[in-house]
Design a protein around this nucleic acid. Structure first.
Lengths: 203, 203, 203, 203
DNA sequence: TATGAATGAGGTTTCATTCAT
DNA sequence: AATGAATGAAACCTCATTCAT
């Protein structure tokens, strides 16, 4: 039982090692300019070794992506489950998300747009993988909004669309930080977004 | 006068021909999966001919990008100059923009995120090129907002940030359409965004 | 008679113009790194025009080469026909040659070695062209040496080989100038070569 | 100890294999008409493999060149260190050199003249590489000459220039062999050159 | 005649993936 | 399991030559 477990543990450790290295490299250079050579070197492993853990570059990229999103989901879940009024919880979610985006800025941008895969097969897999996680996320936000509506803290809105719009605004702030070369300020920006979304422009 | 003009005209026509083909291919496949071979074939020209008009793949891509943004700017300008109240004009801008995004969906996504260039030199050129156009765009929106403030149609806000947030929301809707595989409805979505932005969630 | 002659003259002038430009470019960059584009531009003509005068790059190169050698032969002939003793005339020939080499340094080096042509056909033509001119040159030197022998100014030697060796030494000085980045001193070097060849090292 | 050495040995062997193939191809076709495709095929390796050992065509060429010169230097050193009088040793050096030239005729010609590299960087590297080796060579000859002078076997001459002239004469004989399509006779030609250089033409 | 535009063969290089050890 | 070496498809780019005007 011990020998096998040891092996098992080592395998998991190696996987993490590779994923960590890959995350850094993909983040810095985007998918196409990253090479397995560099990733393997950074993970202090031979190039061939990565193929024992991931069936190829595409698979590895997908795994990195899923890891990044899962980490984020975890934090967002915590923020959503806080005992507080609707607005505070939304602001909390926004803050967590922006913090996470700030840490994984470039990767987030790849996620949202780089045309990574050539084969339809992989494109579909990537889409499915992101969709699943995205659904979990929007459900969380929807629940918070729904509760807010039932508590009469906010007015009746299409919670589906609104939950997405919220994510969108946050998401696009990353782009703003990037093109304006601004140092990200997650807390501050989270508040601003909430002010806008809750109070609107009028009056 | 005619001989020279003829040549001149043909040159311009060819340029457009190549740009059109490139726009289609880049849109469909992203930067890295597009090949000059295919672009040239689609433009019904020899591979080498593209080099007569653009110094390389990178340059061609940049030209396509600039073309797309410029077209968009033109429409947004028209919408911004309408005689109407602040909210209607913002909604008009939003609608134009979403319509344009819908037509150039994939390209817009490349624009916002694909890590296209390897050399620092080209990255800088792309950034500068986008920044310049982006600045024109936000100024337009800022003016509309400022006027709205002075006319007391909307409350005092940071017009700079707000104009960006607006673009961001629109921009990110493209992403939403994409991952949800939704048929874009520019007019409807423009209204929704305006409702959110002007009225807020509260009450 | 006049119309035709005018045409004729213009043709010849254009040819010279192209040859002059080509000589400069080939000299600076060697055969393979020279482009017809650059040559035509330097000759202030369209790229296509060169094809009216030379059937292609190879032909043009050959013509340049022949021109350079012919100029040199002319000067060497003059030096060889001077009324003077054998040694003075040889020194004169050497000086003329070195001066010419100095002016056409890089071209001389291409001449002697660059593998210019790919087809056997062109290689043969180049060889024949050079051989013919080379033969004229060595005959000149041989005559001077033979006369020197008959006048008992120098000892009996294989004049054929010796005439070549003389050319060789001169030729290789160009290489020496080049790798040592020395400013050519034709007169001085001609004297040195003569000293060596006539007096030898011994005693 | 064995495992590592095995790898090491194989690497060295492959390098030699590639260098050998490259030497043959470069010799036959010159730098520009040689393709990595052909070199790899001749080395019975894949095209990409050469890049594992040499960073590119230019680098490979430089390595071939250095190899050829180094082999030659080795032989010349041996000839220079013979116990004998100055003239015999010079003749020995000349013979060795001519033999080597005969074997690497075409490559020697590329070396001396083909404009191989386009970038200033590579030109400089090639120059430096050749210069270093050339310096070793001329020093050897200079030493022999200096000793000859001090032993009063030859008269006082500029040993620096003379050592170069000697190399030049030898070098240019390769050219002679080539254009006259003569079968090289290293021993005989070495003697002739010595006769000329030591006895001179006079008397 | 003169030319600028068009062409595509041909070359170099990169790198994901495979494989023998 | 781990690896470094091997592979070759694929892509970009250059430029001699052709050609319509």
């Amino acid at each position: 039982m011990n020998g096998k477990t040891r092996r098992e543990k080592e395998r998991v450790a190696r996987r993490k090692q590779i994923l960590a290295a890959a995350r850094v490299v993909f983040s810095r250079k985007g998918y196409h300019h990253s090479t397995l050579e560099e990733i393997a070197r950074k993970a202090q492993l031979g190039k061939g070794t990565t193929y024992w853990y991931f069936s190829g570059k595409a698979e590895l990229f997908l795994a990195v992506l899923e890891g990044v999103i899962d980490e984020q989901l975890l934090k967002v879940k915590q923020a959503a489950s806080e005992k507080a009024d609707c607005r505070s919880r939304i602001e909390g979610i926004a803050r967590e998300q922006l913090e996470h985006f700030a840490k994984n800025q470039f990767l987030t941008r790849i996620l949202s747009s780089e045309v990574v895969f050539k084969t339809q097969e992989m494109k579909r897999r990537m889409k499915r993988s992101i969709d699943e996680r995205y659904a979990v996320y929007t459900e969380l936000v929807e629940d918070v909004l729904r509760e807010g509506i039932s508590r009469r803290e906010i007015r009746r809105v299409d919670v589906k669309k609104m939950s997405h719009v919220l994510l969108s605004v946050l998401h696009s702030l990353v782009y703003y930080w990037h093109i304006k070369e601004i140092k990200p300020r997650p807390a501050e920006d989270a508040r601003m977004v909430c002010d806008l979304v809750f109070e609107g422009l009028e009056r």
